[in-house]
Design a protein around this nucleic acid. Structure first.
Lengths: 355, 355
DNA sequence: ACAAGAAATGACTACGAATTCATCATGCCC
DNA sequence: GGGCATGATGAATTCGTAGTCATTTCTTGT
């Protein structure tokens, strides 16, 4: 039994200890720590000396308890295996660090949003950023209605009273369709995903609607819904599409991993990209720019999205009755070698062609 | 100013409130919460009913304050852009969640280990897992000497009195050398990295030593040290190597991203892998198995390493005088299409050939 | 039915930092 | 030099939980 009850972190020097050693009251130590001007320089000096000597560190639990806030923010992530999410987490972490907040991370694979929301209610965190498109929990609905400090990032739910930040996935899908049609692609296919995720749903809808508007409705056999967002799914999907009597000459994949799987699958069947088949992805993860894939894709303004999500969250932590915002940022089509190499800019005008 | 001083998390129902409503003492509420057997079923029922009605959640700060522990573990990571680290983080998170611990994440890019160690001293976290190979701070040295709950994961420092878990990088490098020689490669090159990281250093040393033992010392012009572990560095390195009068026929890259960069660079210069050039990586990140790279590489027993690191950490949190362990786990050469396609198993025996 | 013991419960307290309020010291002005 | 403002400091208090210890209530055996 190495620990007494109520054991404290290593040093376990308290502000009372410091006060005693510096022959002042605990209140004065607290004042010095908080840089209160009402301390005589001489006294401050003495206290600072003892603080340094004892290597005092304030007890975080006591401080949080007293202050009523934790200075920590919760982040719920999913599928860290997909590069977009580590990148997002990295951005969130960097920005929170700059703001002096800690970041507690939950993986939505283990209980979805619930553990994070629970932590919020217990005061473990001051607010929560939800990035994972988990099922719409009634738990979340309720918390959201309470005006709790919860922000949905890269995920929208129309009737939640929570702040939400996403990029314009509808427009992203539209851009891809416009681009492919403008470049004269004739047989355009779509590899989509589970419609539970709002982002995916919007990408698909934007893509379809734009095709329709251009008189090029997507035929059912050119649509493949993959159950998971994996490389293997992309391979499988492209294999099906290429087995068709009239295989597509362009495929839009709703995210980059699917696109890379599709590319590898197509190549394995002897197709050349982009000579025989164009492939477009979504997200612009780092690998997309590497030589092996050199993937045309849609890039979201990640840093900006994260910044806005954190802004909204901190604002709401400050005042829970702050107005609810649903932000939707524009994104950008990044054209690379998986499309376009030898096709000249098409004559058919698109709404926003980026030849 | 929407918040009173000492504001509490949303509900802000305390155990006193519950006690009042259930017409019992706060102590009894506490007992019910902690499942103390000394509560009459009837009383327990009444309290539970109020607990449910009020949606009571214990105040985490007060609890942590009182209990003297945070039930949180800190993790310092680096370069989340390299897939190995998100995978590691995911494993750590999953295992901690299973143990009922929260995970606070710091990116070593912002202050190195210091913020995490500081948090440890303040009791924000009960222990820290350091995965990032940052500079050897005197801060850490000191903390380590104190017997604080710190574990180095995938990183070794000989004279730190901390628990350490890594895989046998020396042996991993050795295996690669043995394999390449055994398969009859004649001109073997090495793309290495900053020797600050113990893992990288060991991989290089193991590789070199094994070559020497086999009478195939690495000539200086076949060694390239990249400053960063990036795809671009790999491309750059391979370009240099291929410009040599006698370019290598096999390259060992000390991690997978470098290997992928090298592969893309080699292909861009018209070389075929593995027909003209073999490439071997290290880490076996997910992409390594994808068709575009199909990379031969060395896999570390990640889940096991994480499990052992957490075991050691929790043991040390329990008793700071626990014996110090330096664990070193074996790893595995995973042979794929970036090597070996048409070379038959060599006649020359290697120590542990895996043809 | 009563004592003795066990079970159930409540009053009270500690934990550490930050804050309020009271008090004491100091300097300044006329 | 007396009085008053201001600056510096300490005593006391608060926060919510989980303990300790004392007290009350119940159960059981005779």
């Amino acid at each position: 039994m190495a620990r007494a009850r109520g054991a404290k972190p290593s040093g376990s020097v308290t502000s009372h200890d410091v006060a005693r050693l510096a022959r002042v009251s605990q209140a004065t130590v607290s004042r010095v720590l908080r840089d209160d001007p009402n301390v005589r320089p001489q006294t401050r000096e003495r206290v600072l000396k003892v603080l340094a000597e004892t290597r005092y560190e304030p007890n975080a639990a006591a401080r949080a308890f007293r202050a009523g806030r934790a200075d920590s923010i919760g982040v719920v992530v999913a599928r860290l295996s997909y590069q977009l999410y580590p990148a997002m987490l990295e951005a969130i972490g960097a920005q929170l660090a700059r703001l002096g907040r800690r970041m507690i991370v939950w993986d939505s694979d283990h209980g979805g949003d619930a553990p994070a929301i629970r932590a919020l209610r217990q005061g473990v965190v001051d607010g929560v950023i939800l990035t994972a498109a988990t099922a719409e929990s009634e738990f979340l609905r309720e918390v959201s209605a309470e005006g709790s400090a919860v922000v949905l990032l890269n995920r929208t739910v129309a009737d939640y009273a929570s702040d939400q930040v996403s990029s314009d996935n509808l427009d992203g899908g539209r851009r891809v369709a416009d681009y492919l049609v403008a470049c004269g692609r004739e047989r355009i296919a779509l590899i989509g995903g589970i419609p539970r995720a709002s982002t995916i749903r919007d990408r698909e809808r934007g893509f379809r609607k734009s095709l329709e508007r251009l008189g090029r409705e997507l035929p059912p056999h050119y649509y493949f819904r993959s159950e998971t967002f994996s490389h293997a799914s992309g391979e499988q999907a492209v294999t099906r599409l290429m087995e068709l009597a009239s295989p597509p000459d362009a495929i839009f994949c709703v995210n980059d991993v699917l696109a890379m799987g599709a590319m590898d699958g197509a190549r394995a069947r002897g197709a050349r990209v982009p000579d025989d088949l164009w492939i477009v992805g979504y997200d612009d993860i780092e690998i997309a720019s590497w030589g092996a894939y050199d993937l045309t894709t849609v890039r979201q303004p990640m840093e900006l999205m994260v910044a806005q999500a954190i802004d909204l969250l901190l604002a709401r932590i400050d005042r829970r009755d702050a107005p609810v915002h649903h932000k939707c940022l524009p994104n950008e089509l990044v054209i690379r070698g998986s499309t376009a190499r030898q096709t000249p800019p098409a004559s058919q005008p698109a709404r926003k062609p980026r030849p």
